[in-house]
Amino acid sequence: MIRSWNALEPHLGFLLEGFALTVAACVLAVAGAVVLGALIASLRTARSRAARAVAAVYCDLFRNVPFIVQLFFFFYGLPELGIYIGAFETGVLAMSIAGGAFVADVIRAGILSIEQGVIEAARVFGLGRWQIFSRIVMPNALRVSVRPMGSVLINLVLTSSILSTITVNELTGTAKIVAATTFMPFEVYAVLLVLYAALTYALSLAVAGVHRRLNRGMPEAVA
C-alpha cells in the first residue's frame, strides 16, 4: 500500500490537471444543458404544434442513442462541415446537447405540474404571455425540478469520463496515462472510482442545498 502510494505520488499534479479539466467540462456542460433544456422544455409545452413536435423528436433521439455514438458523430462529423473546434469543445458541445434532452424532460414535467389556475390568475391580472412565462411558469417549474435535475446532472458528470475516448485528457484520460506509466492500473482506477463517487456525492449535497433554498417557506410535500 505504501509502495503504491510512493509510486503514485509524482503523478498527483498531473491527475489534478485532469480533474480540473473534468470540472471545467462539467461546469460548462451543465450550464449548456440547463439552458438548452429550458429552451427545449418551453418548446415542448408551446402552443405551436410544430414546435412541440420538433422538441419531442429532439428529446427522443438524443435520449435513445448512446452518448459515445453521439460524441463520435460530432467529433468526426463537424470537421467534414468545415467546423474545426478542439476535442474539448466538441465534448462540451455533445454533453450539453445530450444533457439538454434529459434536462428538458425534467423541466417539462415541472412546467406541467403548475396548476392551470395559477396561470389563469396571472392572465386575469393582465400579465402578458412572456411575463407569465418568465415570472410565473419558469421559476415555479425550475423549483420543482431541481431534485430530479440533480440526478440528471450527476449522470452528466459520470458521462464526462467518455470524453477520454476523443483524446480529451480529463480525469479518466490522465488516469489512463498514469496507469500506463506506473503499471498500477488497479490502484489508479480504484482511486478514480472513489474520486468520482466523492465528486457526485458532493454534487448531490449541493443539489439538496439548492432545493432547500429554493423551496424555503414551502410546505413539506407529502410523499
Binding site: 469520463s161 489512463k176 488497479f186
Partner: peptide, 11 residues
Amino acid sequence: KNSPVLVQLFL
C-alpha cells in the same frame, strides 16, 4: 451507481 462505467471497465 455513482462512478462512470468506463472507469469500472478499465478497473
